[in-house]
Computed example of a mutant assay.
Amino acid sequence: MASISNDNAPPQVVVFDAFGTLLRIGIRKQPYLQLMRLARECGRKPLPDDARVLMTQELGLFAAAEWLGLPATLPALAVLEQDLFSELSSVQLFPDAVPAIQMLQEAGIRVAVCSNLAAPYAIPVKLLLPNLDAYCWSFTVGAIKSEPDIYQQVARQLDCPLSNLAMIGDTLEADCLGPRRCGMQGFHLSRDGSPTADTFTDLRSFARFVLDIV
Protein backbone atom coordinates (compact mmCIF):
# COMPACT_ATOMS: atom_id res chain seq x y z
CA MET A 1 0.00 0.00 0.00
CA ALA A 2 1.19 3.53 -0.74
CA SER A 3 2.35 5.66 2.14
CA ILE A 4 3.34 9.20 2.99
CA SER A 5 6.82 9.70 4.36
CA ASN A 6 7.02 10.55 8.05
CA ASP A 7 8.98 13.64 7.03
CA ASN A 8 5.93 15.06 5.26
CA ALA A 9 2.66 16.36 6.64
CA PRO A 10 -0.67 15.19 5.19
CA PRO A 11 -1.19 16.99 1.86
CA GLN A 12 -3.17 20.20 1.72
CA VAL A 13 -2.90 20.37 -2.06
CA VAL A 14 -2.89 17.71 -4.77
CA VAL A 15 -1.03 18.65 -7.93
CA PHE A 16 -1.88 16.76 -11.09
CA ASP A 17 0.04 16.51 -14.31
CA ALA A 18 -2.16 17.40 -17.29
CA PHE A 19 -1.78 15.30 -20.43
CA GLY A 20 -1.55 11.57 -19.86
CA THR A 21 -2.95 12.05 -16.36
CA LEU A 22 -6.10 14.18 -16.39
CA LEU A 23 -6.52 14.55 -20.14
CA ARG A 24 -5.70 12.73 -23.34
CA ILE A 25 -5.37 13.79 -26.96
CA GLY A 26 -7.72 11.87 -29.22
CA ILE A 27 -6.18 12.84 -32.57
CA ARG A 28 -2.40 13.00 -32.33
CA LYS A 29 -0.77 15.21 -34.94
CA GLN A 30 2.24 16.51 -32.95
CA PRO A 31 2.46 19.83 -34.84
CA TYR A 32 5.37 21.18 -32.77
CA LEU A 33 7.40 18.04 -33.43
CA GLN A 34 6.51 18.36 -37.12
CA LEU A 35 7.62 21.99 -36.94
CA MET A 36 11.06 21.03 -35.64
CA ARG A 37 11.37 18.43 -38.38
CA LEU A 38 10.38 21.02 -40.97
CA ALA A 39 13.04 23.41 -39.68
CA ARG A 40 15.62 20.64 -39.99
CA GLU A 41 14.50 19.92 -43.56
CA CYS A 42 14.91 23.63 -44.31
CA GLY A 43 18.52 23.50 -43.19
CA ARG A 44 18.37 24.48 -39.52
CA LYS A 45 20.64 22.39 -37.33
CA PRO A 46 18.71 21.09 -34.29
CA LEU A 47 19.88 22.27 -30.87
CA PRO A 48 19.71 20.13 -27.72
CA ASP A 49 17.34 22.51 -25.93
CA ASP A 50 14.91 23.19 -28.80
CA ALA A 51 12.04 21.27 -27.20
CA ARG A 52 12.68 22.93 -23.84
CA VAL A 53 12.56 26.40 -25.39
CA LEU A 54 9.23 25.66 -27.07
CA MET A 55 7.80 24.66 -23.68
CA THR A 56 9.31 27.48 -21.62
CA GLN A 57 8.34 30.43 -23.82
CA GLU A 58 4.81 31.54 -24.64
CA LEU A 59 5.01 30.71 -28.33
CA GLY A 60 2.10 29.91 -30.58
CA LEU A 61 2.83 27.81 -33.63
CA PHE A 62 3.70 30.72 -35.94
CA ALA A 63 5.83 32.40 -33.27
CA ALA A 64 7.62 29.10 -32.74
CA ALA A 65 8.19 28.85 -36.48
CA GLU A 66 9.67 32.36 -36.48
CA TRP A 67 11.97 31.41 -33.57
CA LEU A 68 13.12 28.40 -35.61
CA GLY A 69 13.87 30.69 -38.54
CA LEU A 70 11.00 29.61 -40.78
CA PRO A 71 9.19 32.25 -42.87
CA ALA A 72 5.56 32.86 -41.87
CA THR A 73 4.56 32.52 -45.53
CA LEU A 74 5.70 28.90 -45.74
CA PRO A 75 2.65 26.92 -46.98
CA ALA A 76 3.41 23.98 -44.69
CA LEU A 77 2.73 26.17 -41.65
CA ALA A 78 -0.94 26.48 -42.56
CA VAL A 79 -1.19 22.69 -42.58
CA LEU A 80 0.48 22.49 -39.19
CA GLU A 81 -1.94 25.10 -37.83
CA GLN A 82 -4.82 22.86 -38.93
CA ASP A 83 -3.13 19.91 -37.24
CA LEU A 84 -2.82 21.92 -34.04
CA PHE A 85 -6.51 22.79 -34.15
CA SER A 86 -7.36 19.12 -34.69
CA GLU A 87 -5.31 18.10 -31.66
CA LEU A 88 -6.72 20.76 -29.38
CA SER A 89 -10.27 19.97 -30.47
CA SER A 90 -9.76 16.28 -29.72
CA VAL A 91 -8.64 16.69 -26.10
CA GLN A 92 -10.81 14.76 -23.65
CA LEU A 93 -10.80 14.13 -19.93
CA PHE A 94 -10.00 10.67 -18.64
CA PRO A 95 -13.18 9.23 -17.06
CA ASP A 96 -11.66 9.25 -13.57
CA ALA A 97 -10.36 12.84 -13.70
CA VAL A 98 -13.42 14.81 -12.60
CA PRO A 99 -14.60 12.26 -9.99
CA ALA A 100 -11.14 12.25 -8.37
CA ILE A 101 -10.96 16.05 -8.35
CA GLN A 102 -14.46 16.33 -6.89
CA MET A 103 -13.62 13.85 -4.13
CA LEU A 104 -10.63 15.95 -3.12
CA GLN A 105 -12.32 19.34 -3.38
CA GLU A 106 -15.37 18.22 -1.41
CA ALA A 107 -13.01 17.20 1.39
CA GLY A 108 -11.34 20.62 1.39
CA ILE A 109 -8.20 19.59 -0.48
CA ARG A 110 -7.07 22.19 -2.99
CA VAL A 111 -6.26 20.99 -6.50
CA ALA A 112 -3.71 22.30 -8.98
CA VAL A 113 -2.28 21.28 -12.33
CA CYS A 114 1.38 21.52 -13.29
CA SER A 115 2.42 20.68 -16.82
CA ASN A 116 5.15 20.88 -19.41
CA LEU A 117 3.49 22.04 -22.60
CA ALA A 118 3.53 24.48 -25.47
CA ALA A 119 1.29 27.47 -24.86
CA PRO A 120 -1.75 26.52 -26.99
CA TYR A 121 -2.27 23.29 -25.04
CA ALA A 122 -3.21 25.20 -21.90
CA ILE A 123 -6.46 26.26 -23.59
CA PRO A 124 -8.29 22.90 -23.50
CA VAL A 125 -7.01 22.22 -19.98
CA LYS A 126 -8.63 25.38 -18.62
CA LEU A 127 -11.78 24.88 -20.69
CA LEU A 128 -12.29 21.33 -19.46
CA LEU A 129 -11.07 21.97 -15.89
CA PRO A 130 -12.09 25.55 -15.10
CA ASN A 131 -12.37 25.33 -11.33
CA LEU A 132 -8.92 24.37 -10.10
CA ASP A 133 -7.05 26.37 -7.49
CA ALA A 134 -3.88 26.90 -9.52
CA TYR A 135 -2.53 26.34 -13.01
CA CYS A 136 1.22 26.16 -13.42
CA TRP A 137 2.54 26.00 -16.98
CA SER A 138 6.14 25.54 -18.08
CA PHE A 139 5.76 28.35 -20.63
CA THR A 140 4.81 30.90 -17.95
CA VAL A 141 7.35 29.77 -15.35
CA GLY A 142 10.26 29.46 -17.79
CA ALA A 143 11.12 26.04 -16.36
CA ILE A 144 10.07 22.48 -17.01
CA LYS A 145 9.51 19.51 -14.78
CA SER A 146 11.69 18.16 -13.23
CA GLU A 147 13.48 21.49 -12.65
CA PRO A 148 12.88 22.79 -9.10
CA ASP A 149 11.57 26.21 -10.18
CA ILE A 150 8.31 24.87 -11.57
CA TYR A 151 7.40 22.99 -8.38
CA GLN A 152 8.36 25.99 -6.28
CA GLN A 153 6.07 28.15 -8.40
CA VAL A 154 3.11 25.90 -7.62
CA ALA A 155 3.83 26.27 -3.91
CA ARG A 156 4.07 30.05 -4.26
CA GLN A 157 0.79 30.27 -6.16
CA LEU A 158 -0.97 28.38 -3.39
CA ASP A 159 1.02 29.89 -0.51
CA CYS A 160 1.66 26.38 0.74
CA PRO A 161 4.90 24.66 1.82
CA LEU A 162 6.29 22.14 -0.65
CA SER A 163 6.04 19.47 2.03
CA ASN A 164 2.23 19.85 2.01
CA LEU A 165 1.94 19.27 -1.74
CA ALA A 166 1.36 15.81 -3.24
CA MET A 167 1.82 15.35 -6.97
CA ILE A 168 0.81 12.56 -9.31
CA GLY A 169 1.40 12.07 -13.01
CA ASP A 170 2.22 9.54 -15.68
CA THR A 171 5.91 10.44 -16.01
CA LEU A 172 8.00 8.94 -13.23
CA GLU A 173 10.83 11.48 -13.26
CA ALA A 174 8.76 14.62 -13.81
CA ASP A 175 5.77 13.81 -11.62
CA CYS A 176 7.14 11.59 -8.86
CA LEU A 177 10.92 11.65 -8.43
CA GLY A 178 11.43 15.33 -9.31
CA PRO A 179 8.81 16.53 -6.82
CA ARG A 180 10.29 14.32 -4.11
CA ARG A 181 13.72 15.85 -4.56
CA CYS A 182 12.11 19.24 -3.92
CA GLY A 183 10.41 18.09 -0.71
CA MET A 184 7.01 17.29 -2.17
CA GLN A 185 5.20 13.98 -2.02
CA GLY A 186 5.39 12.37 -5.43
CA PHE A 187 3.40 9.48 -6.90
CA HIS A 188 3.34 7.76 -10.26
CA LEU A 189 0.25 7.04 -12.36
CA SER A 190 0.59 3.93 -14.51
CA ARG A 191 -2.80 3.16 -16.02
CA ASP A 192 -1.59 -0.06 -17.64
CA GLY A 193 0.70 -1.11 -14.80
CA SER A 194 0.31 -2.68 -11.39
CA PRO A 195 -0.25 -0.79 -8.13
CA THR A 196 2.79 -0.56 -5.86
CA ALA A 197 3.80 1.50 -2.84
CA ASP A 198 4.26 4.57 -5.03
CA THR A 199 2.19 3.78 -8.11
CA PHE A 200 -1.53 4.06 -8.76
CA THR A 201 -3.44 2.72 -11.74
CA ASP A 202 -6.31 5.21 -11.57
CA LEU A 203 -7.01 8.62 -10.08
CA ARG A 204 -9.96 7.59 -7.93
CA SER A 205 -7.74 5.20 -5.98
CA PHE A 206 -5.20 7.97 -5.52
CA ALA A 207 -7.88 10.39 -4.27
CA ARG A 208 -9.15 7.80 -1.79
CA PHE A 209 -5.57 7.25 -0.59
CA VAL A 210 -5.09 10.98 0.00
CA LEU A 211 -8.38 11.27 1.87
CA ASP A 212 -7.49 8.32 4.09
CA ILE A 213 -4.38 10.09 5.43
CA VAL A 214 -5.58 13.67 5.90
Rank of each mutant, 00 (worst) to 15 (best):
Y135F: 15
W137D: 04
V154N: 09
D133L: 01
S146E: 07
I123W: 10
P130F: 12
A143G: 05
G142Y: 06
L158K: 03
A119S: 15
L127D: 12
G142S: 10
A134D: 03
Y135M: 10
L129A: 14
P148V: 04
A143D: 05
T140N: 13
R156M: 04
I150Y: 04
L128W: 09
L158V: 06
A143E: 04
K145E: 11
Y135V: 08
Q152N: 04
Y121N: 11
V125P: 04
Y135C: 09
A122K: 08
I144P: 00
L158T: 05
A155G: 10
L129R: 12
T140F: 02
Y151I: 08
V154M: 11
I123H: 09
P120F: 06
P130R: 12
V154L: 14
P120M: 09
L129N: 12
A119W: 01
W137C: 07
T140A: 14
L132Y: 01
R156V: 03
A122C: 12
L132T: 02
A143R: 05
F139P: 06
L158S: 05
K126W: 01
Y121Q: 06
Y121V: 06
P120Q: 10
I123T: 14
R156P: 00
W137M: 13
A119H: 07
I123V: 14
K145C: 11
A143C: 07
L158C: 08
V125D: 05
P124D: 06
E147K: 04
Q153I: 00
A119D: 07
Y135L: 11
V125I: 15
N131M: 00
N131H: 15
A119T: 05
E147V: 02
K126P: 00
L129I: 13
D133I: 01
V154F: 06
F139I: 06
Q152T: 02
I150E: 04
L129C: 12
S138G: 12
V125T: 13
C136T: 14
V125K: 05
P124A: 09
S146R: 02
I150K: 03
A134W: 02
C136E: 03
P124V: 08
C136M: 02
A119E: 11
C136Q: 02
V141A: 10
A122E: 13
R156I: 04
A155V: 08
Y135N: 08
L129T: 12
A122D: 14
P148G: 06
P124R: 04
L129V: 09
A122F: 00
D133H: 13
N131G: 03
P120T: 08
E147M: 10
T140I: 01
T140Q: 15
L132W: 03
V141C: 13
A122L: 01
Y135G: 06
Y121P: 05
I123M: 12
Q157C: 07
E147Y: 04
W137Q: 04
Q157V: 00
I144G: 00
A119Q: 13
P130C: 12
A134F: 03
A134N: 05
D149V: 00
N131S: 14
P120N: 06
I144E: 14
Y121A: 14
